[in-house]
Design a protein around this nucleic acid. Sequence first.
DNA 1: CTAAACCGTGGACAATGGTCTATTGTTTTC
DNA 2: GAAAACAATAGACCATTGTCCACGGTTTAG
Lengths: 114, 114
Amino acid sequence: MRIGELAQKSGVSRDTIRFYERNGLITSTVGDSETNSYRNYKDDCLVWLQFFAGAREAGMSVADLRSIVEATAESCDREVARAVVQRKIEELKERANQIGNVVRFLENALSGSG
Amino acid sequence: MRIGELAQKSGVSRDTIRFYERNGLITSTVGDSETNSYRNYKDDCLVWLQFFAGAREAGMSVADLRSIVEATAESCDREVARAVVQRKIEELKERANQIGNVVRFLENALSGSG
DNA sequence: CTAAACCGTGGACAATGGTCTATTGTTTTC
DNA sequence: GAAAACAATAGACCATTGTCCACGGTTTAG
């Protein structure tokens, strides 16, 4: 599919898709038309982009995402990939914990001074 | 207390403290020495800074923090403050949820392709 | 055929959240 | 009293994460 369709389906803007591509989060191929150099995106790009959107909201950096993408590439060791992802999971859980602390602090502040 | 002590106790760098102060997260007063213009920070600055550190880790922006600080100022309506803080709490909980989704996605990816 | 919509490339611009440096003056410590 | 540590201010600088714009070319719809 072309970038416009991908953008529309994923809800991620063309510019951001290109930005992600420049940063190695997704890849595309140049189609074989002789008249243009439009790029082609496979379905898994859509899946990734949807994941990226959620992950960014969850506070993961583009660098984090890249490390996951890279680790899970076909060429990579399964065990290494597993370790990288596991690590990110731990970090996310820590972050969730931290959010819990902050929420408790704020709730406490509310009831304490209310 | 002076900025150095505050930095050391809070674990937040002088530069960052000044940055926060410029952005209205904390305030200080100029001491009454005739020879210098060193600023004075009260104990509650330390409490705030510790909160800020956790809140930033939890993904809150400086603007978020400012809105909390401003809403909870003495001069402000208790009910307004409560509403602002409650709103932030909801946002944090949403974020925690989002993290949960991402974690589940990643855990699934691990067990799915493992 | 023509206008509208699309595409690629490249680079400028912007907001956020700091960090570092330079300069000048003050305290503290030896 | 000299050196080391601290302080204030101002401004430069940096990475991150996009967004926007201009350009020239392509495809599609009417």
